[in-house]
Write a protein that binds this DNA or RNA. Structure first.
Lengths: 204, 204, 204, 204
DNA sequence: TATGAATGAGCATTCATTCAT
DNA sequence: TATGAATGAATGCTCATTCAT
């Protein structure tokens, strides 16, 4: 028991250090952006030695992706929302809500998302991480489409994956527009508009 | 006249030099990608002095964007295709064809598009250039939507720009997937599938 | 008695740990070479804590030199071979045999010698250790020369130390050539050739 | 002619810059040793931009080896001295003189040789450069031995290369001893002593 | 005797861009 | 119009070693 307590102290200390680095990283990355942020700045802010960060993160990219974990988890929750509509109306409501939550989440973490957007173009590792999120959504959407097709709600399209991708990309890019302040529409309006399009099509 | 002729010669010479640099640039950029390509390599291949490129292009980014001009022109042609459908069927056909042409063009210039994709994440200037293309498409699509709404073919959606963006983003991202070999579907199938979705919606 | 026994156990444990570290060190050093070998790797292989190695060895260099001890002991045995020739022929035979043993020993420990060769250029401590071996040989050879001079077998040269050094350096460098695969001659031939030169000179 | 003059000016300037870097390099390398010398220090002393040195030398190692060129040239001259003795006495005199010149040259450039000795253990490139010098000597000596064997002055040894190597290594290592102040003997004495051994052997 | 978290020094190198000629 | 010598900013990462526990 003494030993466990002893180890616990050390582990706690280490956990604290990791937390400090993460906090410092968040501040520096959001302030400077991914490229301009330096490990030195982060270590200084965390008041840890220059090499300490490398004890917990293989490199700058992985420190950043660790910071993405939180968002990813939330994104996954949105992606994996249960989807079992009985009617077209239910489907519409649930899809719209998912889109809204997706946009809302992005806006809640606006600064971090901006950093991710930048990092994505620069770091292979971050790009891959983001692609995991994309994949999760696309996979989930694909499943959802298949389901509503089977339940007779949706048309029998040939390529569900393609539609899932298309639909997600529409969501994703509008999300980036929001995050980068390229559009200022209300997320409710956006969700409604594109869900309308997705579910009902443009033409009469 | 003598003077003019002399200037003309020099101008021709200059044009030739510019052409050499562009050709060299194309080769190097496609071979190495945007980041790894160096001005030195380009100048060497063009057999011009190390500073000569800067007489014609403000910097590396602008040499690259100059190389994008050709593609942009073709993209603009696709974006600006006349769109005056009388029936839903005509609309569908024309939209599908536009999508198909867009994807086809990207695939025809696959290597260059790969370089653009990379450069877009790295260079502000290239990103802006690409955004011009986006804007052109979105503007054109917005106009098209407005038109079909007025002609009674399409539903009266509130936010045409949002729909235009969404639709374009769907096209764009699937285009990148194609260019980066993330999907291998036939472009006809892709065009058909997403045009179906766009025009008719997913649900019955 | 209980206490002594207890200490004894600990001492044995400690000896075991030291042995583990040495074994791990040997494996890592031979595999990676001196510079590329890391204390972390050694500790991991020995399954000891990261700081444990420093309980037994002041630093990386001393862990390495500890690994040299075995070779040094054997080298010393070769250096200190009794040398009391009655005739020139006996002298020749004994010298040649010493040279041969020296080369043989080096080849038997080829990999370790390669590591030593590398380490010698990098680590002051290892260099000093190797210089101890050199000194031992040179001292012994000096004594031998003095002896054969006094017994009338050899010419009365002025500077016996210089000759001893010269002769040893000839041996040493050819040994390195062998160890580093720069020459592939049979060690017997080498021993014979240079002993011929040493004892009889190049000229008639 | 104007053009040539123009080019000449530039080339002269460039040559001057290269010279400045070389001079600065010499000073810094001799002062700090190979490892502790930094390119920044050298550039600062040469009053050139931080990247300028890399215009003339691929890296730190090559700047150093450029500094060795001068010594190498002189070494080569010593190595390639004509050797056509008619008698054993002439051979002895010429060999001794070559050894003396070799040691003398090393002592004249003592500090640089110390730096080379250090660099040799650390830099692969420098090591290779030094091996070129070794090879030049060994090749020349091999030729010399073959010659005196054919002219009947020397015994017909089997392996001339081995003897050449042995003889050179003896010279080389004593040279390092001198350069590193491990021995303080007069170079004349050294040359005489080891030439005696080489030509006449140790034994009567 | 053992652990392992924490430390922090230390530096080569690239390459877009400029500007004197 | 062309040259090419010169510039200089900018930073991640390793790993031997220490020391509190």
């Amino acid at each position: 028991m003494n030993k466990t307590e002893h180890l616990s102290k050390r582990q706690l200390q280490a956990l604290q250090t990791r937390e400090n680095l993460l906090n410092a990283g968040r501040i520096i990355f959001l302030e400077k952006g991914f490229q301009k942020a330096t490990m030195t700045q982060i270590n200084e802010l965390a008041k840890t030695g220059y090499g300490t960060a490398y004890l917990y993160f293989r490199n700058k990219d992985e420190l950043f992706t660790a910071l993405m974990e939180n968002i990813m988890k939330k994104m996954y929750e949105v992606a994996d929302r249960p989807f079992q509509p009985q009617t077209k109306q239910e489907a519409y409501a649930q899809i719209k809500e998912q889109t809204r939550l997706f946009l809302q989440l992005a806006l809640e973490e606006k600064e971090m998302m901006q950093a991710i957007n930048e990092a994505t173009g620069v770091s292979e590792i971050v790009r891959e991480k983001w692609n995991q999120i994309r994949l999760r959504f696309i996979t989930a959407i694909t499943k959802d489409i298949t389901q509503v097709q089977q339940s007779g709600l949706a048309r029998k399209k040939v390529n569900t994956v393609l539609i899932a991708k298309g639909w997600f990309y529409m969501n994703e890019q509008l999300m980036w527009d929001l995050v980068l302040n390229a559009i200022t529409d209300d997320i409710n309006d956006i969700a409604e508009t594109i869900t309308d399009l997705y579910t009902g099509g443009l033409y009469k």
